[in-house]
């Protein structure tokens, strides 16, 4: 078990280092930050001044080592637009994004898992086909399209603008639904197949032969066993949620990290972009680490390895 955890911790650190390096490289090859910062008609000398101020005139390797050194000291740089530390810019936006993402995940789980279970228990019946049809639709529908349609319906039919106000119930539910729809479809499909596999397992037949009732068989034996592959999927779907939140926030004008990222990339705000990507990477790595640890809690077979 120690080695199971140890191996995953090492893997997490390596993944993080690779991500940092890739972001560092990509942002420097995708356009000249100094040129983007300087006024459009600025002469070359001004651009060079900006470049020098940002340390972009130094060789790439020394920029890289300097950046890693700063990271280790907890110095994540300053946003060139606001002059504030990039951490502070990020943290200001974080709560509203967490709120949106959390609600989306909750909606996806609360609707997706029961839908999948209903489909599994009614296998081959019309309700099964209906649920599976819906889940394919939910999975395939691009979230920007769904979001725009919601906004349109709100504006044209109900004369109200949906989105942008985190304090209003409907303004939260619709963006969250937009963001969580794809995950909901995936959860429903996965829950169905996973549950179908377990309800026909030999230990379920044996439990029936031992006189254990249907409800108890399902809740105490089938559901825990079916949840093992689902935990993996939930961990992975976090990536989809983060990616989706960038689009969703843009569509609804939601004042979150996604919107900040789009703006910072457009304006070559290096420090902010680097920090956001770093934060996303850390989130993903932590989420998958938690998934791996959850296996230990759920599955004794992994625990004793």
């Amino acid at each position: 078990m120690i080695s199971y955890i140890g191996l995953r911790l090492i893997r997490a650190v390596v993944t993080l280092l690779i991500t940092i390096t890739l972001v560092f490289i990509f942002i420097r090859f995708s356009g000249d930050p100094a040129a983007a910062l300087a006024p459009p008609d600025a002469p070359q000398e001004v651009i060079d001044q900006y470049r020098e101020a940002l340390g972009l005139d130094k060789p790439l390797w020394s920029q890289y080592t300097a950046y890693l050194g700063q990271l280790l000291q907890g110095d994540f740089g300053y946003s060139v637009h606001t002059g504030l530390p990039s951490v502070q810019v990020f943290l200001a936006r974080l709560p509203s994004t967490l709120f949106l993402g959390g609600t989306a995940l909750a909606v996806a789980l609360a609707a997706g898992l029961p839908l999948g279970a209903i489909a599994a228990l009614n296998r081959g019946k019309p309700i099964d086909r209906l649920v599976m049809g819906f889940s394919v639709f939910a999975f395939a529908l691009p979230n920007f399209l769904f979001g725009l349609v919601i906004i349109l319906i709100g504006a044209l039919v109900f004369q109200t603008y949906i989105g942008s106000n985190p304090d209003s119930f409907l303004d939260v539910v619709f963006p969250a639904l937009t963001l969580g729809l794809a995950s909901m479809g995936a959860f429903a499909r996965f829950a169905r197949s996973s549950l179908l596999e377990t309800i026909n397992a030999p230990f379920m037949v044996a439990a029936e032969a031992r006189g254990i009732g249907r409800t108890r068989r399902l809740l105490r034996h089938a559901v825990p066993n079916a949840s093992i592959p689902l935990v993996t999927l939930i961990g992975l779907s976090l990536g989809g949620l983060i990616a989706g939140s960038i689009v969703t926030e843009q569509v609804f004008g939601w004042p979150g990290v996604g919107q900040l990222l789009v703006r910072s990339v457009a304006t070559r705000d290096i420090a902010t972009v680097q920090f956001i990507v770093l934060a996303v990477a850390v989130t993903m790595i932590l989420a998958n680490l938690i998934v791996d640890l959850l296996y230990l809690v759920i599955d004794p077979r992994i625990r004793s390895k």
Binding site: P202, F203, A206, H221
Partner: peptide, 24 residues
């Protein structure tokens, strides 16, 4: 039958390991 299984009649299967819930 629920009240009869295990009480009046019981059954065992070929693959004993698989007829136990792996998580409990």
């Amino acid at each position: 039958y629920l009240a009869m299984r295990s009480v009046r009649m019981a059954m065992i299967f070929q693959d004993a390991g698989a007829s136990l819930d792996p998580l409990q």
